[in-house]
Amino acid sequence: MMNHTLKGLCNLRAGTVVTGKWHHQSYKLLKPLGHGANGVVYLAESMKGIVALKLSDNSEAVTSEVNVLRRFSKVQGVALGPSLLDVDDWVTPLMKKHIPFYVMEYIKGEDFSTFIRKRGKEWIVILLLQLLSALDKLHQEGWVFGDLKPENLLVAGPPPTVRLLDVGGTTLQGRAIKEFTELYDRGYWGLGSRKAEPSYDLFAVAMIMIQSCCPIKLERKGDGRHQLISIIQADGMLRKYQAVLMKAIDGKYKRASEMKQDLLATIHRSAHSHSKQRASKKTTQKSQRSKKRKRGKAKSVVETALIIAVLLCAYAIYVYHQILP
């Protein structure tokens, strides 16, 4: 459901120049990058280079997001979200309206699902491990990301690195989650509250893994937990991580780092058992082969003995005839 202002903002022509009322910076819009519940993001050109610019009809939402981005920019050296460059109002020449906007660093990359589709499912776990590291830092700063879903993840690089986008749902711990998406929300699945705590994000991580491994259209039917278990057991890759996934789904991880460790342990264990299996297969093959060889040897011994026996018999008959003329 979009209102008229937002719809108008979605259809701005390339080349439109957005100028800020307070800081007097100008941005030339190049193309739309995407739109969410309360705004549109454009690729734009400015004095500082190529940037991403979010226009919105909702001043409160913009202000909240800017607050979050500003706090993040204080957390140095972590790829939590795009860095904030400018916040301002644009007075549109046509509508004569104040449109609040903010400008972020433009992160070039592919969205999570496209990346997985192109590069293969083996990347899922690797990207999720990266995501868990980022979440751990975010949680330690006292925040919860909230609206965690593949659409809000961007794979930048090379080397492929996961980045969080859209901080609209980012909430201080202990408060109620600001924004969420049903499918990735533990409340929707009947598996927990909407209180902002690290385990809320970790449930969403489990759901991202489930959705990436089997991209079917999910919808809750009856007992949510039961439904999720049957989906996990039906998929070969998910089955391998069942223990970790269920712990996340049941909210048993208190920290992202715990889930990361368990994921890593599962990868190593499965790799280990894989090589073990291969090794044991090799030894059985060897013994079978040697058995075959042994059997071959016995055969030749019998053969030789038989030939010797026949020759001996023939010689005996010959000698016998020589003696008895």
Partner: peptide, 12 residues
């Protein structure tokens, strides 16, 4: 809306 964006953040 008449407040500069920085101040708005605090109000929000």
């Amino acid at each position: 809306e008449d407040l500069p964006p920085e101040k708005r953040g605090e109000v929000m």
